[in-house]
């Protein structure tokens, strides 16, 4: 109980809201953040796919160092990197242990390390790219590469509604807590409390379903009067919206540098 209480005090709803927005809008001053979303997409198109098909360790290491450089350039919060590393190590570790049960030996380690390396490159590439784009840029970029207007609208709407929804959910959750009765004993490993709180977390969605439904009705009526559906169906609207996107010198510089680097890595890798 003590643990839950401390956690709930630390994790105030206000706190979460602030952290979320800072995550989203925090890194707008880096070099990468100033690039055009299309540049970042193309770059990611390469580094998100190609590593899967490469088994040459030197090339992979070369790419990995490049990813470390770009990731540090994008000033990603250390927490995200930590979560990523733990996830990768965990997965590799389980595979390693499990494979020994099936007659594996020391030779399993190398392929697993390479697999982990590939996954790291791909994950770091996505972190570099997507942490360098604030939501507006990402949604503009997605719109530009042909995703329907509903997607970019939804991203904006998500940011608009999240604080209200979170707050409402929190209030309902509190109503459950204050009027209900938490189990007297926590049970082994807090299992009673865990079940109690999980149940509340699920039940709180019943009220939220109904109230969100009411919201959705007004919102969609307003969207109708604000011409959203007109906008979704008229490509010239998209053009006006994306008029500010332009590829500049820094975009080309970045891409050309990446290409040269990769060519070097490949030639080195194939000649060793």
């Amino acid at each position: 109980m003590e643990y839950t209480r401390k956690l709930s005090e630390k994790l105030s709803v206000e706190q979460v809201k602030i952290e979320l927005l800072n995550t989203a809008y925090g890194n707008s001053n880096t070099f990468l953040a100033k690039l055009d979303p299309r540049t970042l997409f193309v770059w990611y198109l390469f580094f998100g796919i190609v590593p899967w098909f490469i088994h040459n360790q030197v090339i992979l290491l070369g790419m990995f160092f490049f990813m470390i450089a770009t990731t540090s350039m994008s000033k990603v919060s250390p927490l995200i990197i930590l979560i990523l590393s733990l996830g990768l190590l965990g997965q590799g570790g389980y595979l390693l242990i499990a494979s020994w049960f099936f007659g594996g030996d020391i030779t399993v380690i190398l392929p697993l390390l390479i697999l982990t390396l590939k996954l790291s490159i791909i994950s770091l590439a996505s972190i570099t790219v997507f942490c360098s784009m604030d939501p507006e840029k990402l949604s503009d970029g997605l719109l530009k590469i042909g995703l329907p207007g509903q997607v970019s609208f939804s991203i904006a709407y998500g940011y608009r509604m999240l604080p209200s929804l979170l707050e409402e959910y929190h209030h309902i959750f509190l109503s459950f807590r204050l009027r209900g009765k938490a189990p007297e004993k926590n049970g082994l490993l807090y299992w009673r409390s865990i079940i109690y709180f999980s149940k509340i977390a699920v039940l709180s969605f019943y009220p939220l379903l109904l109230s969100t439904t009411k919201r959705a009705r007004t919102t969609v009526e307003a969207l109708e009067t604000k011409g959203s559906f007109y906008g979704f169906n008229h490509p010239e609207v998209k053009k006006i919206k994306l008029a500010h996107l332009s590829l500049r010198t820094r975009d080309y510089t970045f891409l050309i540098f990446s290409i040269i680097y990769i060519l070097c890595v490949f030639s080195v890798g194939n000649n060793i």
């Binding site: 939501p135 609208f153 904006a156 709407y157 940011y159 608009r160 209200s164 009411k214 919201r215 007004t218 919102t219 009526e221 307003a222 969207l223 009067t225 604000k226 011409g227 959203s228 007109y230 906008g231 008229h234 010239e236 609207v237 006006i240 919206k241």
Partner: peptide
Amino acid sequence: GYIYQDFENQLVSPRVLDDASFAPLNFGY
């Protein structure tokens, strides 16, 4: 122009100016 009683749900963009210019953008101004 219609302003709802639950006007909060009428605001659909995260930021102020984006919301105020939402309709003219959709109509292609």
